[in-house]
């Protein structure tokens, strides 16, 4: 690596995928809602999942009207907002966690929040908080030029999503714009654990693989080690969201250490499917 080029936030993400590729392993990418149940616990959860084998984390930024999310993540956003989580709190979680772990952290944030804060300020806050980039679930490519330019300048990843309803030529255009990795949404629908992988998913990932060199990470509906193993066989990474959010919610009231131990075991089981 060149010693003269200053490190960019996206470098850690790219290095992580390169290391996994070299080792023949895949990236487990848990999703954690920021501030559910509180800032301190979120920091501890990020630390625990990194130790348990997560390669990267999607930090969900609570939003009042998340139309791409199913009941589990909606409820976690509502709880976190009800406890007063603010963007300052979200950035604090990222800053404290990224100081303790090497696992890259991306913010999953509605464009409503980014637009309101202003792109430049949001990007600057993200860089200062040690985030590696963004997943913006409600920003299609047609509307993304401004954020794209700001992320490129700041060296942040702007991860794009392709879905089962995306036509092939559009999927290629999206893949070309995606930086960090390409988020392959497994199902047409909202987030949430499902009992079976959707038909055609594996073939869709294989097809995408022929169209882009950017790492492909699959998310939505994946919750158990067998599903993780099946997806990891063809993709570069697997996102597990609602199932983990639910475990954290169900552990509310337990001592924090017991909850962290439970989360760590669960993530370690999932991570085993990525090796």
């Amino acid at each position: 690596m060149s010693t003269t080029t200053p490190a960019r936030p996206i470098d850690a993400l790219e290095a992580m995928f390169a290391a996994n590729r070299a080792a023949g392993t895949k990236a487990l990418a848990p999703f954690v809602t920021a501030g559910d149940p509180d800032v301190e616990t979120s920091v501890a959860v990020l630390e625990a999942i990194a130790k348990a084998g997560a390669s990267l984390c999607e930090l969900g930024v609570p939003y009042s009207d998340p139309i791409a999310d199913g009941p589990v993540i909606q409820a976690s956003y509502t709880r976190a907002l009800g406890k007063g989580i603010s963007l300052e709190g979200v950035f604090r979680i990222a800053r404290e966690a990224s100081a303790r772990v090497t696992m890259p952290i991306l913010a999953m944030a509605s464009y409503s929040l980014i637009f309101r804060r202003g792109i430049d300020r949001f990007v600057a806050d993200a860089v200062a908080a040690g985030l590696a980039g963004f997943v913006v679930p409600d920003l299609p490519i047609e509307e993304s030029d401004d954020l794209d330019a700001a992320c490129r300048t700041a060296g942040l990843a702007l991860v794009r999503l392709v879905t089962p309803t995306t036509p092939p030529e559009r999927a290629e255009a999206i893949a070309r714009k995606s930086t960090g990795f390409l988020y392959c949404v497994s199902v047409a629908g909202v987030t949430g654990a499902r009992t079976e992988l959707p038909a055609g998913l594996i073939d869709r990932v294989k097809w995408l693989r022929t169209k882009t060199d950017v790492p492909i990470v699959v998310g939505f509906g994946i919750s158990d080690p067998d599903q993780v193993r099946a997806v990891a066989a063809v993709a570069d990474g697997v996102i597990v969201g609602s199932a983990l959010v639910r475990r954290i919610a169900e552990a509310a009231g337990q001592p924090r250490d017991a909850m962290l131990a439970d989360i760590s075991r669960y993530v370690a089981d999932l991570a085993a499917g990525c090796r």
């Binding site: 139309i67 791409a68 464009y111 409503s112 679930p137 409600d138 920003l139 299609p140 047609e142 509307e143 794009r160 999503l161 392709v162 879905t163 089962p164 309803t165 995306t166 036509p167 559009r170 999206i174 949404v185 047409a188 629908g189």
Partner: peptide
């Protein structure tokens, strides 16, 4: 404009 999840774009 159109600020929606990709699933709805098509």
């Amino acid at each position: 404009g159109r600020y929606v999840p990709e699933t709805l774009s098509a």
